[in-house]
Amino acid sequence: MIRVDGTGKSNSLIQVRGLDKTYRRGGEEIQVLQRLNLDVDKGDFVAFMGPSGSGKTTLLNLLGGLDVPTHGSITVAGDEITHMSGNKLTQWRARHVGFIFQMYNLLPVLTAFQNVELPLLLTKLSKSDRRKHVETALGVVGLADRMNHYPRQLSGGQEQRVAIARAIVADPTFLLCDEPTGDLDRKSADEIMELIHRLVTEHGKTVLMVTHDPVVATRADTTLHLEKGVLVEGKTSHESVMAGGAA
């Protein structure tokens, strides 16, 4: 159950309390996020929507440990990440977060297999175990037969599938998707969203996704709106679209 009023239960998978993020630009302070609260349970699929500059990506960066808040706390699976050192945070990301980017961000010099294997290089798994994990992840995204292809030999949709395989291969605690369909045509976008939805329903993954696309947001259980750095109470995505609530 997703809550934004700070009254969620204490054993929520992700617990955000009083989150502020302020940037300095040319001597001026810009408050991107204000006193933000959020509770996400395991297996939730939440979409963040909002106009450009509303703080969606900033929130995702903070949740993924890529940035640090000005005030407030973020607790994931009992670990408070806001006070972790740089090295600890790096290790925490490797263990708990799977990133899916709009531009896929695959390494062009590596094959699909090698790209997916990257997060596993940080573990103590043997080569044969790494191979098994990579083959499983590529099987889940339907690209087992393309593992020796380079990104340039794949379509945009296939590249994003490889990126999803890379995100799930180490079995992270949750996935962060930043506009995962933003660079895809409608058909490929639908396929990617179907895949992410299956990760939630069939594999029990927790997914937090930023999107501009209301149709994409309907695949999430809940859509939350960010307006001027404040989260607006969620309704189910289906209700949101029916009510014309998309930004």
Binding site: T90, Q91, A94, R95, F99, M103, N105, L107, P108, P119
Partner: peptide, 14 residues
């Protein structure tokens, strides 16, 4: 730059 940033994002240390 972006590739190195992705490596760091997925858990490779600086």
């Amino acid at each position: 730059t972006s590739e190195l940033a992705v490596l760091k994002a997925i858990g490779f240390s600086g």
